[in-house]
């Protein structure tokens, strides 16, 4: 782990991991409803890295072409939520969410639109759950479907330098019966991390029910 302790202390990192766990679990439950099969999740990873390094982390695990569906969010903190999976899984995921509703040809004909809607349900559930727990509203953009290599897909805005540091959160998901796997990820721009940190401390206070000692 690349020292998120630089910006978050142990308790804050624990709380952030727990918040992400709850948000992603809700996202996984919605995916489970859509595909009708169990969705397995890994433990979340939190890294404070540059966008370029985040892209390398993904590329090391996923050298082949990827599909990334992205939703931007803004509010007390801001960044991008991403549903990432190998492009070779794309059609299988569409078949899984349209199973029984559409023929294989019909499903293939609306691949990108089905991926956008699926990611929208998964990512919105995750972000909204986070927002509710932190008691701060978040605005979310429409989902955008992109295809290509990790490096290109993570360079999400020309105004953001590749060496700008982000909090990179990611969780593996797998639908074993369908041979589908991928990641639910979040890139939090670091200027907003201080705001997030204070929300996390408030969250901890509400749970613990008393003041949390300063880090």
């Amino acid at each position: 782990m690349n020292a998120p302790s630089v910006v978050l202390d142990d308790l804050e990192r624990d709380a952030m991991t727990e918040l992400v766990n709850i948000g992603v679990s809700r996202a996984a439950a919605s995916l489970r409803t859509m595909v009708g099969q169990q969705v397995m999740l890994s433990v979340p990873s939190l890294e404070v890295v540059s966008r370029a390094t985040a892209a390398v982390l993904v590329r090391e695990r996923e050298p082949d072409s990827l599909v990334v569906v992205r939703q931007d969010f803004t509010g007390a903190f801001y960044g991008q939520a991403l549903l990432i999976f190998p492009e070779t899984n794309s059609l299988e995921l569409v078949r899984a969410v349209t199973g029984g509703l559409l023929s294989a040809d019909e499903a293939a004909g609306m691949e990108d639109e089905a991926l956008a809607e699926t990611a929208n349900v998964v990512l919105s559930n995750c972000l909204a759950t986070l927002a509710n727990m932190l008691e701060r509203p978040l605005e979310m953009s429409l989902p955008q479907v992109m295809r290509g290599e990790a490096a290109r897909l993570f360079d999400v805005s020309p105004s953001l330098a590749a060496d700008a540091v982000v909090l990179f959160l990611y969780i593996n998901f797998a639908i074993d019966d369908r041979n589908i796997r991928g990641y639910i990820a979040m890139l939090l721009d670091l200027p907003s991390l201080e705001a997030l940190r204070s929300l996390i401390r408030s969250f901890i206070s509400r749970i613990v029910g008393e003041g949390v000692p300063p880090p």
Binding site: V122, S124, N125, A128, T129, N132, M140
Partner: peptide, 9 residues
């Protein structure tokens, strides 16, 4: 109908 289950929504 939405997956945006925020309290405000």
């Amino acid at each position: 109908a939405t997956a945006n289950v925020q309290d405000e929504v």
